[in-house]
Amino acid sequence: MLLKLENIYKWVNQGGNRTFLLKHLDLEIDEGEFVSVMGPSGSGKSTLLNVIGLLDGFDEGDYYFQGEAVHQMRDKERARLQKEHIGFIFQAYHLIDELTVYENIETPLLYQKVKSSERKALVGDILDRFNIVGKKDLFPSQLSGGQQQLVGVARALISRPKILLADEPTGNLNSRQSREIMELFKELNREGMTIVQATHSEFNASYGTRILHLLDGSWTDTPEL
């Protein structure tokens, strides 16, 4: 088992009312799974991904990552965990406009203090693999949306994470580009990468090995549990 959420609650207080973003939520994900989380806007998909990805905290419940109790960790350990094991992919790609393709992909390695020669090799490999070597010196604004997201995926993979978290990764793409990204996800999953994606699209969700439905911060219609 890669990670386990137990009885997770997350809420905000608004004008004396407590609004639950996540409510009594349990989730187990094994290594090598490809989980699609579906649900309408505001159902808590992004919040869940942020909690899993350690970008956001929660108010109640336990979270174990590879058996380690994340809820008991100090910030520093959590940051290390995130840096080494989690890769993010965003709907809006979120590439750094001032950096080239090459440099964008390289950035996570810089924060992991990987040596220069090794960085070069790693980035070279992934450029090669994604077939974007020719674009390595271009800036994000010079790429199409699909290509930008490809760079986003490459950047997420460069630090060899245990899990890939993708929040509406194809939300800004046309159907052909979407399919390409989904095919890429499928192939990555086949190679053993654990993936959690949040999506509106039934079609995209169908690429997953397991589909979960979220409504108002809780699971609905969840036969697996």
Binding site: H94, I96, E98, T107, P108, Y111
Partner: peptide, 16 residues
């Protein structure tokens, strides 16, 4: 801000 967000997501600490 966007750049800061991305960098943080990819493991930059505040000090960096």
């Amino acid at each position: 801000a966007k750049e800061v967000g991305i960098r943080k997501t990819f493991g930059s600490v505040r000090k960096a």
